[in-house]
Amino acid sequence: MKQINKLKKQYNDIEIPSELDEVVKQTIQRATITKKRRSPVKRWSLGVAVAVAMFVGSINVSPAFANSLVNIPVLGSIVEVFTVQTLTMDKETYQANLKTPAISGLDSEGLQTALNEKYIEENKELFKQFKADVADMEKVGAGHMGIDSGYEVKTDTEQLLSIARFEVNMVGSSSTTMQYDTIDKQNNILITLPSLFKDDSYVEIISAYIKDDIKQQMKDDKNAAYLTSEGADPEFHSIQANQNFYITADHKLVISFDKYEIAAGYMGVVTFEIPSDILSDVLVGDTYIQ
Rank of each mutant, 00 (worst) to 15 (best):
L98V: 12
L98M: 15
L98P: 08
K99T: 15
T100R: 13
P101G: 15
A102D: 11
A102W: 07
I103W: 05
I103K: 06
I103H: 07
I103Y: 04
I103P: 06
I103T: 08
G105T: 07
G105D: 06
G105I: 05
L106M: 10
L106S: 10
L106C: 10
D107Q: 14
D107R: 14
D107F: 06
D107V: 11
S108L: 10
S108I: 05
S108E: 09
S108G: 11
S108A: 13
S108V: 06
E109D: 12
E109P: 02
G110N: 10
G110E: 09
G110R: 10
L111K: 06
L111Y: 08
L111W: 08
Q112H: 08
Q112M: 15
Q112W: 04
Q112V: 08
Q112S: 13
L115A: 03
L115E: 02
N116R: 06
N116H: 08
N116Y: 08
E117I: 11
E117W: 04
E117C: 04
E117T: 09
K118T: 14
K118R: 13
Y119W: 11
Y119D: 03
I120K: 05
I120N: 02
I120R: 04
I120D: 01
I120W: 03
I120F: 07
E121Q: 12
E122A: 14
E122G: 08
E122I: 14
E122N: 15
E122S: 13
N123R: 15
K124R: 15
K124A: 13
K124H: 14
E125G: 09
E125S: 14
L126D: 13
L126V: 07
L126A: 07
L126M: 12
F127E: 09
F127K: 07
K128A: 14
K128L: 11
K128F: 09
Q129R: 11
Q129F: 07
F130R: 03
F130S: 06
F130E: 04
F130D: 04
F130L: 06
K131T: 09
K131V: 08
K131F: 04
K131G: 06
K131H: 07
A132N: 11
A132D: 10
D133W: 00
D133E: 12
V134P: 02
A135I: 07
A135P: 04
A135Q: 13
D136I: 01
D136P: 00
D136S: 04
M137C: 00
E138W: 03
E138K: 12
E138N: 04
E138I: 00
E138C: 00
K139I: 02
K139C: 00
K139Q: 05
K139H: 01
K139A: 05
K139S: 04
G141A: 02
G141R: 03
G141E: 02
G141N: 03
G141S: 02
A142I: 03
A142F: 04
A142G: 01
A142K: 09
G143E: 00
